[in-house]
Nucleic acid binder design. Structure first.
Length: 915
RNA sequence: GGGCGGUUGGCUCAGUGGUAGAGCACCUCGUUCACACCGAGGGGGUCACUGGUUCGAAUCCAGUACUGCCCACCA
């Protein structure tokens, strides 16, 4: 308990509050974690943002969630590590650096590989970590002493080990197949980095004549330029239109080639003419079809997107789109165009360059994913990795079951160069004159030894960025070295991410984790028994939370090109980090997307302001002797017992909601408790004793307020860390920072049904009186006398003990608890029934018979409606016979209450009619 | 084409079998002791549609419509 406590400024200014705390927390090392055998570990390795990135709304949402979970566990006493880092982001970074070069009129080839990579590093030094500063602004309590980057030396060791292992096991292999080719980067990109867009195009119907002059076949295509690479025309074997012609040769127009008409069930009879041209080098389907029929693979489009010599001298060197026009024109000149239709084409676009992807036959490195996917499916099906929301589990499994080989080579410079060395000299003693061989090696020396020759060179390509991020959870903790961190913090607890990288990233982390991290003494829940039967393959994380996508207020995806993005840093500047976090957490539940509007943050800021002002009120009424210790039960008023009961319910709700990642429920529970229960009722009920009570009453009230507020701040801190710390420091408290204060846990002895019932009668009575005054336009300053006629002994007791309280809340002169209705003959009072009592308000000459009759009629109508509903239910023999008996009794009770109310209203109406 | 969501007051969303809710917006009132970024009171919804299950459906089931997202090699 510190005697000297800082004071709270009069007005809440998030900027002043937030600036000082982060650096203090960081300097004191609260966020740094070292393995502690006396504690349970809790670990998150945050999704590493690209070094090209700056904070966007998705980051803000995800990191608000991650930090809330981190702070919550730290306060609960876990040894808590949240490890930050960044991703080198191959294509994205190369893109920005090349753009920079272009501004200087240079290309990467002007610099050469080495100099270019130097430029990338410079860029990374300059801008690559600015997002860390933005995380700090958001309040993220990450361990900055453990920052990792995917090109760190130790991280590279992990990637080399991954490659070596898969290479030696034959899982990594060299293959020639059609890949998605990005002509701008001149590199392969993965299926996942290709987005399909609907674009307007044409469907061209071309005639291919038979060589023997017996007519022609019409085929349809959206890419006429690929005609030049056609190796066959296929039709379905069951298609009677083509059955007589299978095996006949066709003359491929614009070329001197003859191609066969083949039978393959990949051709669908119902589409177009039922005949499809086959271009094995430029279409994945055609490629596979070509393999089945041993067709030649004519590469007619080159890596730069222009036509190759194989396309013929008329076309060589033309850009693919120019070649398209030229082919159409030439076909028209030959009279071989049957028709051209408008057509919507699903066009593959490269996510990074936005260029149309060219499917292209090329030689690449692949990983065979099937054997890696099997355990990754099993562990999820066994429920050892929990997906939240659950629906993503099935989506994951379905995708994993259909997994395809992963092309991991990229023809880029920025990234991890593939650790494979080549030579064209035959191995010693080998009879094979075709000596092209390769081996795994990290250095030329190793390669020379392995290949047995000095004449060798390293593969030019680099690895797909996701090849490195796939190792994130274990590689950041030290793998392949079995460090103390890895032993203690792994498996990690939570992976929270956006749904679009479920496959790209999450599934691959699961596969690599299970494949590479194995332990002999691991508990069953941490993994799968490995094939050797003595070790267990360890899962990388226990929970996968897939957060919502943040859309704009119209429900559209935020994007730079649309210009509808919101910069979270602007929000933090304007409303504060606490309001920004709270507004996002309030919307983060099991929903698939969030329609965000700035108004939400403004409103969350109002909540912070309310918190500030209510705290200021409490603080200004404390004195030096206030300890903030909970007063003994005998000293607590019914209101005190009530607020503790509400507080306990809130503690339980918040802890339960955080366990299931229902941030929205946790936020709502805290909002309602603080604003409605604490501010609107408890503080108002505390005022008489706090401001005008005896010394003892005052002291109990001060300690109650300080205690409840301090507990509430601890509950709120993981969500809104800055403002809660600022206020907490000004309150009586234990410890040096709220970051390290214990998180509230349920206190079942606070739960108090009796106090809740008594307070709900108090609140209902207060509302009834306020309502009567308002409806009859009684000037607010008027102090009236009121009476309450309880319907039973319990109500009698609680009304009697709370009479003064109600009088104060409802601004009455007095509230008398009576045993019979006040004299009806005066006609100067009005009444409202509540559950448990009849409330009378004496308004004397202010009574307006017309208005009062109107008020009674309105209430009667509502009551009558309820009675009718209730009666029809109770008159239904099926309901009485089949519904649960408690339910029927409850309905009877309810009906009785409505009827009592109706009776009293009718009685009142009669009196008014008479007067 | 396949899969998965959503549809509740003017707006944004809670509510998963038993009396339709919140915040904002709207209307009325309020400058005495934290907060007008506030307080008090009020109006406003046949819970998208159709059918089914049930004593009883916003809630469960089937279908329809609209809408969004993810996946996919139909020329």
């Amino acid at each position: 308990m510190t005697a000297e406590r800082p004071e709270l400024a009069k007005a809440y200014d998030p900027k002043l509050v937030e600036e000082k705390w982060y650096s203090l927390w960081k300097a004191r090392g609260y966020f740094h974690a070292e393995p502690d055998p006396n504690k349970t570990p809790y670990c998150i390795t945050i999704p590493p943002p690209n070094i090209t990135g700056s904070l966007h709304m998705g980051h803000a949402l995800n990191n608000s969630i991650l930090d809330t979970m981190t702070r919550w566990h730290r306060m609960r006493g876990f040894c808590t590590l949240c490890l930050p880092g960044t991703d080198h982001a191959g294509i994205a970074t190369q893109n920005v650096v090349e753009r920079g070069l272009a501004a200087e009129g240079l290309t990467r080839h002007d610099l050469g590989r080495e100099k270019f990579i130097e430029r990338c590093w410079q860029w990374r030094e300059q801008y690559g970590t600015r997002i860390y500063y933005q995380f700090e602004k958001l309040g993220c309590s990450y361990d900055w002493e453990r920052v990792r980057f995917t090109l760190d030396e130790s991280y590279v060791d992990a990637i080399m080990e991954e490659f070596r292992s898969w290479y030696e096991r034959g899982l990594i292999y060299r293959g020639t197949r059609v890949v998605n080719w990005d002509v701008k980067f001149q590199s392969a990109v993965s299926d996942i980095e290709v987005e399909m867009q609907e674009r307007k195009g044409k469907l061209y119907h071309f005639r291919y004549p038979f060589v023997d002059g017996s007519g022609f076949i019409t085929i349809a295509t959206t890419r006429p330029e690929t005609l030049l690479g056609d190796a066959a025309v296929a039709a379905n074997p069951a298609d009677p239109r083509y059955q007589p012609h299978f095996g006949k040769m066709l003359r491929l127009p614009l070329t001197d080639r003859e191609i066969p008409l083949i039978a393959d069930d990949y051709a669908k009879p119902e589409f177009g003419t039922g005949a499809v041209k086959v271009t094995p080098a430029h279409d994945l389907n055609d490629f596979e079809c070509g393999l089945r029929h041993n067709l030649p693979q004519h590469i007619v489009i080159g890596k730069d997107g222009s036509m190759t010599p194989l396309a013929g001298s008329d076309y060589e060197g033309l850009d693919r789109f120019a070649a398209r026009k030229r082919v159409v024109a030439d076909m028209e000149a030959l009279g071989l165009v049957e028709k051209i239709e408008d057509y919507t084409i699903q066009t593959p676009i490269s996510e990074r360059s936005k260029e149309v992807i060219e499917p292209l036959l090329s030689e690449q490195w692949f990983v065979d994913m099937k054997p890696l996917a099997a355990p990754a499916i099993e562990i999820v099906q066994q429920g050892k990795i929990r997906f939240v929301p659950e629906r993503y589990r099935d989506i994951y499994v379905r995708w994993m079951e259909n997994i395809r080989p992963w092309c991991i080579s990229r023809q880029l410079w920025w990234g991890h160069r593939i650790p494979v060395w080549w030579t064209d000299e035959p191995a010693a003693g080998s009879a094979d004159p075709e000596g092209r061989r390769h081996c795994f090696a990290r250095t030329k020396e190793q390669a020379e030894t392995a290949l047995g020759t000095a004449h060798c060179w390293q593969d030019e390509d680099v690895l797909d960025t996701w090849f490195s991020s796939a190792l994130w959870p274990h590689a950041t903790l030290g793998w392949p070295v079995n460090t103390a961190d890895l032993a203690y913090f792994y498996p990690t607890n939570l992976l929270s991410t956006a749904q679009e990288i479920l496959y790209l990233w999450v599934s691959r982390m699961i596969m690599t984790g299970l494949d590479f991290v194995k332990r002999t003494d691991a508990p069953e829940a941490d993994g799968l028994l490995a094939p050797d039967g003595t070790t267990r393959s360890i899962l990388p994380f226990r929970d996968v939370y897939v957060h919502a996508t943040v859309l704009d207020e119209k429900g559209e995806r935020m994007s730079k090109s649309k210009g509808n993005g919101i910069d979270p840093i602007d929000l933090i500047e304007k409303y504060g980090a606490d309001a920004t976090r709270f507004s996002l957490l309030q919307q983060a539940g099991k929903n698939q997307d969030i329609k965000y509007s700035e108004q939400r943050t403004d409103l969350a800021g109002n909540f912070c302001n309310k918190l500030w002002n209510a705290s200021r009120f409490v603080l200004m009424n404390l004195d030096a002797a206030t300890t903030g210790e909970l007063p003994a039960p005998a000293l607590r008023t019914v209101a005190d017992r009530w607020i503790l009961s509400r507080l306990d319910a809130t503690i339980q709700q918040v802890n339960a909601s955080l366990t299931t990642y229902d941030m929205d429920d946790a936020s709502r529970a805290l909002y309602v408790f603080f604003w409605d229960d604490f501010c609107d009722w408890y503080v108002e009920m505390a005022k008489p004793r706090l401001l005008r009570g005896t010394e003892e009453e005052k002291s109990v009230s001060q300690n109650m307020l300080a205690f409840v507020l301090e507990t509430t701040l601890r509950l709120l801190h993981p969500l809104i860390p800055f403002i809660t710390e600022e206020i907490w420091q000004a309150l009586p408290h234990h410890g040096e920072s709220l970051c390290l204060a214990p998180y509230p846990t349920e206190k079942t002895d606070w739960s108090n049904a009796e106090a809740e019932a008594a307070m709900s009668l108090t609140i209902a009575t207060t509302r009834a009186i306020r309502n009567m005054k308002m409806e009859l336009n009684i000037p607010p300053g008027t102090r009236l006398a009121a009476a309450a006629l309880p319907t039973d002994a319990t109500a009698q007791a609680s009304l009697t003990s709370n009479a003064d309280l109600i009088a104060s809340l409802a601004r009455l002169e007095t509230l008398n608890i009576v045993t019979s209705a006040p004299g009806a003959e005066t006609g100067k009072w009005i009444a409202t029934p509540v559950v448990g009592a009849e409330i009378y308000l004496e308004i004397g000459d202010a009574l307006d018979v017309g208005k009062e009759t109107e008020r009674i009629e309105k209430e009667l109508a509502a009551v009558t409606k309820q009675i009718e509903r209730s009666q029809s239910q109770l008159n239904n023999p099926n309901f009485v016979g089949r519904a649960a008996p408690e339910r029927v009794a409850e309905e009877r009770q309810r009906l009785a209450e409505w009827q009592a109310k109706q009776e009293s209203l009718e009685e009142r109406r009669r009196l008014f009619m008479a007067s």
